[in-house]
């Protein structure tokens, strides 16, 4: 390859990278702004805190991103986290379960909710909006019944390390919850990019009919995707309950939308078939950084909600404009 060609190739790759990972650039910009504005922002402790707060949301983002890849979405994820939190805490505190068994049960319940979503959507053909909205209400109601609408606090010490522990000492160690999050992202990114299952999800999102004509079991894949997303809600609940040391009705509140916003900010196409789930992680990090920084700058929390909407519409607008120019 001539030098010119190498340079052109490099330029093309760079432009593709900045297009796909514009969110990474945005994260850096945000960090620069907050670092200048606040002395405390760029400290190891604060950044670590942000990542710990991100972990439970980001785990939900994996499932949402997989569903979005197939061209759909799940509105029940947040309340799924809520009900699985409640199940886990209830089994430990009031049913005398071994905490580890309770954790497995919680994850199982999460997967079951996901499977129910998936079967009704894929096999019964009910639109995902209706089914997942229904399960949002069902899960919320169930969580209220289980907790009697009051928080269940004080988890046993043997599982607290999941949400609060560090590897390498409390001062400069790495949070275990963040390691769990990263491991899950790596695992599912691998599934999406390198396995037949992942490829099939992209095909389904790109064109369901063509995917079926190519012999892909479209219904089965869709049902499994919802199940995986539900299972990850259970995992998220475990991380969240052990970090907060409590299962409350606020657990997981609005995670489904925050996860969708993370996907959008990360640049995953809501139309399906395009994008990588790792982009959702960056979207989630951006979102959490944004709120952390705002809080640190004493921005009114009500105003923060307004800004969240502005940022999301802005991100999509930017993408639309960029696509038009191409």
């Amino acid at each position: 390859m001539s030098q010119l060609a190498v340079r052109r190739d490099l330029k093309r790759r760079l432009s593709k990278f900045t297009r796909d990972y514009a969110i990474v650039v945005a994260i850096f910009l945000l960090m620069i702004i907050f670092t200048i504005a606040s002395d405390y922002f760029l400290t190891y402790r604060n950044i670590r805190n942000i990542f710990m707060q991100t972990a439970s949301l980001a785990i939900v983002c994996i499932g949402q991103a997989m569903i979005v890849t197939t061209g759909e979405f799940d509105l029940s994820l947040g309340q799924n986290v809520c009900v699985t939190s409640a199940v886990m805490a209830y089994l430990i505190k009031f049913a005398g379960f071994n905490p580890w068994i309770a954790i497995l049960c919680a994850i199982g319940v999460g997967a079951l909710v996901g499977l129910s979503n998936g079967v009704l959507i894929a096999y019964a053909g009910i639109p995902c909006f209706i089914v997942t909205l229904g399960f949002q209400m069902i899960a919320r109601g169930a969580a209220k019944i289980i907790t009697n609408a009051s928080p269940i606090p004080a988890m046993p010490d043997e599982i607290k390390f999941i949400g609060r522990g560090f590897i390498g000492g409390n001062e400069y160690g790495v949070p275990i919850s963040v390691l769990i999050m990263l491991a899950l992202f790596l695992f599912f990114a691998f599934i999406m990019q390198r396995t037949k299952f992942g490829r099939s999800l992209y095909a389904i999102g790109g064109n369901k009919e063509a995917a079926y004509f190519a012999g892909i079991n479209v219904k089965g894949h869709r049902a499994i995707t919802y199940t995986i997303a539900g299972l990850l809600c259970g995992v998220s609940a475990v991380v969240l309950v052990t970090r907060l040391d409590s299962a409350a009705l606020t657990n997981g509140n609005l995670y489904e939308f925050d996860a969708m916003i993370s996907c959008i900010l990360g640049g995953i196409s809501l139309a399906g078939g395009r994008g990588k789930i790792i982009q959702a992680l960056f979207g989630a990090i951006f979102l959490m950084l944004f709120f952390n920084g705002m809080t640190m700058l004493n921005v009114n929390p009500f105003v923060q909600d307004v800004l969240k909407g502005v940022v999301m519409i802005g991100a999509v607008a930017l993408d639309v404009v960029r696509n038009r120019r191409r």
Binding site: N207, E209, F213, G273, R274
Partner: peptide, 9 residues
Amino acid sequence: KEQALILDM
């Protein structure tokens, strides 16, 4: 286009 190809792939 509708039945055979995933146009974005």
